[in-house]
Amino acid sequence: MRNHMDQIPLRKLSLKSRIYHQRYLLFMALPALVWMIVFNYIPMYGIIIAFKRYRIIKSIADSPWVGLANFKELFTEGDFSMVMKNTLGIGFMRLFIGFPLPIIFALFLNEIKHAGFKRTIQTISYLPHFISWVVLGGIMMNWLSDAGLFNEILMKTGIIDEPRFFLAEPESFWNIAVFSDVWKELGWGAIIYLAAISGISPALYEAATVDGANRWQKMMHITMPSIMPTVSIMLILAISGILTTNFDQILVLRNAVNQSASDVIDIFVYRVGFKMNRFSYAQAISLFKSVVALILLLGANQISKKTQGHSLF
């Protein structure tokens, strides 16, 4: 009798009868546990190939241990400094430009009082988030080609004299990567802040109006402090993700000519690992990235906890 069982405090039941009692719940939860062990945790075992000389014909266990040889090779071959420079360059630009812009957009959008107009702006600004990078990459190649519209605009306005092939210029790549990402994610990135803003009590604004605060003062002294918890959480995630570039985007926009600016960690792992079959070498930098990301996450979380009082965990 199920209802009878519910009356008995669970701790008094033996584990066996608790398992029997919960058999349906366990049947629903255990497959996902197995799934996580297979698809999340077995790959973690595969990390050890970074310390081995792995060849695709042998199994991971049969490959010989080489200690830190792959890391030594990585740090001395010169690839590492180029890959880190690109990863951090794009990462910091995204942090300084791509992170604050959605917040500013949300603050300004919040000042639009006409509900229908506001909703239309939101609908339009979320749209690019849902379009594949492969399609946007195709659009950008069209725009940025030497006969493309971007060159046409720049020439007509007299900013440049002759067409440039932007995707063939390593010095333009970081800008292209960061600003196309801003274009795609500006509206979507603002959703979470708009949600936070909509939770602010109108009474605060009314009181400020009575006290004679202007729009700017209300924004700085009511809206901003109210959304700070959300900003802190998003900043922790942004900092821990600084080495995670937008893989799909860069895979589409990269080419042999801009490689010196477009080779970031994730792309390097794919290119060297899969195109050159140097799995152990590529895994060494992949592991380096995962560990740094985890340290950054815990570090940013601690700092935010101490200074702001907001943290992920």
Partner: peptide, 19 residues
């Protein structure tokens, strides 16, 4: 605990491919 850890750490592309 097992699930939370998967959100912040993973083996990377190559071990996933080998799996």
């Amino acid at each position: 605990a097992i699930g939370t850890f998967t959100m912040f750490f993973n083996g990377g592309l190559i071990p996933f491919f080998l799996l």
